[in-house]
């Protein structure tokens, strides 16, 4: 059986990002469309690059041991969970501030994200529960 290239998706990400950058230079869209494309391109490019580098570094045995170390994984999970609470608190503060300043649209956006977070947690928990 042919070995699946786990980096393929990240190379595709690179391709998409470069195609979008070309699109930016070769077309004459309005500024807000250009900004939208840029905001879409940057995360694709950075995530693809980071994941490619990460997979490359995972070939180093010491780095792999450090990453796969069960205590380090437990620490990361705990830190992620606490960071999630902190982010939610900051998001709630931002929503309150937007409401106070009567910025309706930003308040709705941050409010929706705030409400979506527990739903996302429920969906992910259900998915993980099925695997464990």
């Amino acid at each position: 059986m042919k070995k699946k290239n786990k980096n393929l998706i990240w190379y595709i990400g690179f391709g998409i990002a470069f195609a979008l950058i070309l699109l930016l230079f070769l077309t004459d869209f309005p500024d807000n469309v250009d900004t939208g494309i840029m905001l879409f391109t940057i995360p694709i490019l950075s995530v693809s690059y980071t994941m490619l580098m990460f997979n490359k570094m995972m070939r180093d045995h010491d780095f792999k041991v450090e990453v796969m170390d069960e205590r380090n994984i437990a620490i990361k999970e705990k830190a992620g969970s606490v960071a999630n609470y902190a982010t939610m608190f900051l998001l709630a503060c931002a929503t309150a501030l937007f409401v106070a300043l009567k910025y309706t649209l930003p308040a709705i956006v941050t409010g929706v994200i705030y409400v979506c977070n527990p739903l996302i947690i429920i969906v992910i928990t259900n998915k993980i529960e099925k695997k464990m």
């Binding site: 041991v65 450090e66 796969m68 170390d69 069960e70 205590r71 380090n72």
Partner: peptide, 11 residues
């Protein structure tokens, strides 16, 4: 021991 068990020394 960490190298044998493939964990970090801190663990």
């Amino acid at each position: 021991l960490a190298a044998i068990l493939e964990v970090s020394r801190q663990t």
